[in-house]
């Protein structure tokens, strides 16, 4: 559990945000500038600045209610930001909807699992592939040759994707009847199927035992290496965060209180204070 990825050197992108040096050759896949949202009078997130390199694994941590999931909802346009901008691949996303953001390259999983419970595992993955399957309603109804060709390709592709987590033999099980851990993994596969360049994982290890978590860590790194994509994850399991995240961003009360490599974060007094409280406060 104590293994760690080799440390990376961080370099600034044109703004003051930092990304790993190996990704510096191309602009960051995601950059947030002064991102913020108010709900009525309540400021949930403010001045959120962050950049993620093309193959970076980044972590977003913070105490409960810090606004981590709200950041995910802003990135995927479930909420429209009140302030600031999100640049995806250098492109402004302010006018995009959830669907358009997904097509532009962001896929996510959910903290409280959201699968298509009444459909099979394979159908769930095929729904992730939805925008990569190329035939219309009429081809489907009249079973034209295009239907057979595309469905066959989608079937093979979904089994390939499922085999990342060794779930190919569960293809015909109803998603709703899978065990908890498998449901979490299926959500990741479904998100991957949409062909993202940035994968957002909301507490992927929640409810998993230590050995499952260790396996998940390997798989997250494997996914990054195979698909060459960036991953941003929210997680409370510090072993996982410190083990695979190359950069970490700590959020408290909707504001970033620290950013940096795992080493920098572990030793940051502000972070320790946010998690454990001030010394001698009792």
């Amino acid at each position: 559990m104590n293994k760690r990825l080799p440390p990376v050197k961080l370099v600034p992108v044109p703004s003051t945000n930092l990304i790993p040096e190996r990704d510096a050759g191309s602009p960051p896949i995601l950059e947030c500038r002064h991102l913020g949202i108010d709900f009525g009078g309540l400021t949930a997130v403010s001045d959120f600045d962050m950049a993620i390199g093309r193959t970076e694994i980044a972590g977003l941590i913070g105490p409960n209610g810090a606004g981590k999931t709200t950041v995910f909802n802003l990135l995927t346009k479930v909420y429209q930001p009140t302030r600031g901008s999100i640049l995806l691949n250098g492109q402004e996303t302010s006018r995009m909807t959830t669907v358009q953001v997904n097509r532009a390259g962001i896929a996510r999983t959910f903290q409280n699992i959201r699968l298509f419970d009444n459909l099979t595992v394979e159908d769930n993955v095929k729904l992730g592939l939805h925008n990569h399957i190329n035939y219309g309603m009429w081809s489907g109804i009249f079973r034209l040759p295009k239907y057979w060709k595309e469905e066959k390709a989608a079937h093979e592709r979904s089994l390939d994707l499922l085999s990342i987590f060794e779930m190919a033999d569960l293809a015909n099980v109803k998603a709703g009847s899978l065990p908890y851990g498998a449901q979490r993994r299926l959500e990741i596969v479904r998100a991957l199927a949409t062909g993202p360049s940035l994968l957002l994982l909301d507490e992927p290890a929640a409810g998993m035992n230590p050995s499952e978590t260790a396996e998940l860590m390997d798989n997250i790194v494997k996914i990054r290496d195979t698909f060459q994509i960036a991953i941003l994850l929210i997680e409370h399991d510090m072993n996982l965060v410190m083990g695979i995240c190359e950069t970490i961003c700590v959020l408290n009360f909707g504001q970033i209180i620290a950013k940096g490599t795992p080493e920098q974060i572990t030793n940051n007094p502000v972070v320790i204070e946010a998690y454990l409280g001030k010394k001698g406060e009792e």
Partner: peptide, 22 residues
């Protein structure tokens, strides 16, 4: 077919359906 799957996905989970680009 692909369209029918999408229809059932909307029934099962609207937010998830949107998140995969439906």
């Amino acid at each position: 077919s692909r369209s029918g799957r999408a229809i059932m996905a909307v029934r099962d989970n609207r937010i998830a359906a949107e998140s995969v680009g439906i």
